[in-house]
């Protein structure tokens, strides 16, 4: 890792991530997640799956689904497209790293800084999720992952444990607005 002079800010514009616990709900900004988008190139599906098995331990997920493998998460985000996520501290140049693995079987784009990530935990997040998005949150199980609107913002929601553990990936420039929505909704149901 290079020793450059610049100090990063989190998406909420601070030196360190913000965590809030409201009632039984914890909303935790997670700046330590590298994201690279991966789009398979024409006719290269097989080759891509093969080279990715090494880091995913299995196949890429289908529509509306994510797979979790060791420290890597792969989320289906569109036709032939996935977001790969891994700890930023271990993968400082993630897109380049992935590109090096997939070569020209896929197009890879740096996405780490396009997003803000909030990890949500609680014993029962359903009443909270009902206030923020139109997904049938009761039916979401681990590995469900889909885009949806949260207060006009297109976000990805990843279910890590049914009703109890979710990750929300939202547009970084609107991190403050999104955080406000999450906090307000949590206060409302707490």
């Amino acid at each position: 890792m290079s020793e450059h002079l610049l100090t990063p800010l989190t998406a909420l514009g601070r030196d360190s991530p913000v965590t809030k616990t409201i009632g039984g709900i914890t909303i935790c900004e997670n700046p330590d997640l590298a994201i690279a988008s991966l789009t398979v190139r024409q006719g290269r599906d097989q080759q891509l799956q093969t080279v990715l098995t090494s880091i995913l331990g299995g196949s890429l997920s289908g529509p509306g689904r994510a797979i979790f493998s060791n420290s890597t998460t792969a989320i289906w985000t569109g036709v032939d497209q996935w977001f790969l996520m891994a700890p930023l501290s271990e993968h400082p140049d993630y897109a380049a790293e992935i590109k090096n693995i997939v070569k020209d079987s896929a197009s890879v784009t740096e996405q780490t800084d396009g997003w803000v990530i909030f990890d949500l935990k609680g014993d029962n997040l359903i009443p909270f999720l009902e206030r923020i998005c139109n997904l049938n949150s009761k039916t979401l199980v681990a590995g469900d992952a889909t885009r949806c609107l949260i207060e006009h913002l297109g976000c990805l929601i990843i279910c890590r444990e049914s009703g109890r553990n979710f990750t929300i990936v939202g547009p970084r420039s609107s991190a403050s607005s999104l955080h406000h929505t999450l906090v307000t909704a949590a206060l409302s149901v707490a």
Partner: peptide, 13 residues
Amino acid sequence: LGVQLISTTEAWA
């Protein structure tokens, strides 16, 4: 066409 698109508006300052 073999082309892939993705927005990166927010990823770069």
